[in-house]
Simulated scan of single mutants.
Amino acid sequence: MAILLAKGHTSDQVANGLEIKKNRFRAHLRPTFVKMGVKQLSRLVTLGLTSLASAQ
């Protein structure tokens, strides 16, 4: 989910694509926030973009 956000999809688009409600989407992201040590979605997306760039 974080990668899809980093690729420019909105949280609504990702939730709809996964056929889940936005609240469920946020609940699934919470462990990722903790693991990555971030508190804001924008920071998580930045980390995802950095990860994608270094993988190429």
Rank of each mutant, 00 (worst) to 15 (best):
L47W: 04
T32C: 02
A53P: 00
G17V: 06
S51H: 12
G37W: 05
K7S: 10
S42Y: 00
A2M: 03
K22I: 14
A6L: 07
A6N: 11
V45P: 04
R24Q: 15
L4E: 11
D12P: 00
R30L: 09
A6I: 09
G37F: 05
R26Q: 13
A6Y: 04
F33V: 02
M1K: 03
L41P: 00
S54G: 01
G17D: 00
K35W: 09
G8Q: 09
N23C: 05
S11T: 08
R26N: 13
L29H: 02
G8C: 05
R43F: 03
I3E: 12
T32F: 04
L44H: 05
S51C: 13
A6T: 08
L49C: 13
Q40F: 11
F25N: 01
F33T: 00
K7H: 00
L52M: 14
T46S: 12
A2N: 06
I3N: 05
Q56A: 14
M36Y: 10
Q40K: 15
L49R: 15
S11W: 04
V34D: 13
V38W: 08
Q40G: 01
L29S: 07
S42L: 03
N23D: 12
T10M: 02
A53N: 12
G48L: 04
G37H: 05
R43C: 08
G48P: 07
K21P: 00
N16R: 10
N23W: 03
R30Q: 15
A6E: 03
L47C: 01
A27S: 12
H28M: 11
G48M: 07
A55Q: 13
L41R: 09
L44P: 04
M36Q: 13
M1R: 03
H9D: 06
M1P: 08
S54V: 10
F25W: 10
R26H: 13
Q40A: 13
Q40T: 09
Q40R: 15
L44Y: 07
A15R: 01
A2C: 03
S51V: 03
S54H: 11
L41N: 00
A6R: 06
S51Q: 14
K7C: 06
S11D: 14
K39E: 14
V45E: 11
T46L: 14
Q13M: 11
R43W: 00
K22D: 01
V45H: 08
L4F: 10
K35F: 10
L18C: 13
T32R: 06
D12F: 05
A2E: 10
R24E: 15
D12G: 00
N16H: 02
L18A: 12
G48T: 01
V34P: 01
F25R: 01
G8D: 04
A53V: 12
K21I: 02
L47M: 15
T46W: 07
K35E: 15
R24M: 10
N23L: 02
V14M: 03
K39L: 14
R24I: 11
H9L: 14
V14G: 09
V45R: 10
Q13T: 10
G48F: 02
V38L: 08
V38G: 08
V38N: 07
K22G: 06
L4Q: 07
K39R: 13
Q40H: 10
T10N: 06
T46H: 05
L52P: 02
L5N: 04
L44W: 00
R26K: 11
F25S: 03
T10D: 08
R26S: 14
M1L: 11
K39S: 15
T10F: 08
